Simulated assay, not measured.
Amino acid sequence: MSERRVTLCWPNRIDEAALSGGSWSWGLPRDHLQTPVMAEVAESSDLLPSSTRFDITLPRFRTIAVAALCKHNLSVDARWRVRLFRDEDASEEMWDSGWLPAWPSIYASSELNWEDSNFWSGVPFEEDRQDFTPLAWAFADRPQVCRLVRFEIEDTNNADGVVRIGRCFVGDAWQPQYNAAYGIQYGHDIGTEFESAGNAEMTEYADVKAPKRTVTFSLDHLSEEEGVRRALALQRKQGLHGEVLYTEHKTPGPMAFSRTFMGRQVSVDPLTHPYYATYANTINLKEIL
């Protein structure tokens, strides 16, 4: 897989899997990781590493290329790790991400002052975490066919006293042979609503909503196989409700973090056949919060 290319990841194999391991709250159980509504979080009983780890056992061999933790409360000092195993007993390891920062570099150096303690790292301050949608992701060195995915989390100094995770993602990834055409559009869907008072000034009162990131791009140089077996399959399998992990960067960083999100299709466009042996499709995604 290329380091920098439009990448679409689906389906989320956690929905068909069996979860085990760790120690989790009775009211906010580990199984909430399988709930697509991210507000229904899974909460650990405490911060012991043995309590915050969990295994995802797949019902049969599946291709896994990427793993992610979505809408988590991990502190800026937290670390996480994901390992893929060929067998259910976790005796045959196929890939190990090693320990990764839960919060990668988010700020570019140009945004920071020389005196800022995070000038070199770009990692946010603890009090700045609420300004971002938490997402930690890791791509395997190559897609692996496996039966078990193990997540480990170390965050023993979390001020909340527990680890909370809104959703976990494990799935395959597709990078088209040719990147998206120029003209890709990034933006935000801001659902803020206004009410006007009945006074002469018609004073406006805002009902503020969280902005949701959007991306629209065109894949203008698809092969027939990519068009039929990938682009149309994405429409058929995920519809308008199914989640799609989107990124342009395999490795987290300031530019990557701003343009990587869990989203869904907001519309589906026909697969077109404009030239001989060439197919095209436009994809529209909106962030899930």
Rank of each mutant, 00 (worst) to 15 (best):
R62E: 09
V163I: 15
D89R: 13
A90K: 15
Y107P: 00
P143M: 01
W120R: 14
I64W: 01
P101N: 06
D155M: 06
L100T: 04
D116F: 08
R81N: 12
A78E: 01
E152N: 10
G161E: 12
S109N: 11
L100Q: 15
Q130L: 10
L148R: 13
A159E: 13
F85M: 06
Q130G: 11
E152F: 03
F61S: 12
D96C: 12
S109W: 07
G166C: 07
L84C: 12
C146F: 04
W137C: 05
L112P: 00
R86H: 14
R81S: 07
F85P: 12
D141E: 12
A67L: 03
W99F: 02
P134M: 08
L135M: 14
D131Y: 02
L112F: 02
D96F: 01
P104V: 09
I165K: 02
A136S: 15
A68I: 06
R62Q: 09
A138V: 08
F119Y: 15
R129Q: 13
V76D: 01
R147G: 07
F85H: 09
F61D: 13
R86F: 11
R150E: 07
R129F: 02
L112M: 07
V162P: 00
S97K: 02
T63H: 08
S117W: 07
P104K: 04
N158A: 06
L100S: 11
E92D: 14
E154A: 12
A140W: 00
V162L: 00
F85A: 06
R164C: 06
T156Q: 15
D131M: 04
E93M: 15
Y107S: 03
T133N: 00
S117N: 11
P124M: 10
Q130I: 11
R62N: 04
D160G: 12
A102H: 03
F139H: 02
D87H: 09
M94D: 10
R62A: 11
L135N: 05
E111Y: 00
R60H: 12
I64N: 01
I106M: 15
F125M: 14
L100Y: 02
D131A: 13
A136W: 05
N118P: 01
N73W: 06
S75H: 03
F139L: 03
V82M: 11
N73K: 04
F85T: 07
G122M: 03
G166L: 10
A78M: 00
E111I: 02
A108W: 03
E152Y: 01
C70D: 00
E152S: 15
W99H: 04
L148C: 08
N113L: 10
N118R: 05
A140D: 01
D131R: 13
P124L: 11
R150M: 08
D87T: 05
E152T: 04
P104L: 05
F119P: 06
P134I: 10
S121Y: 01
N73M: 08
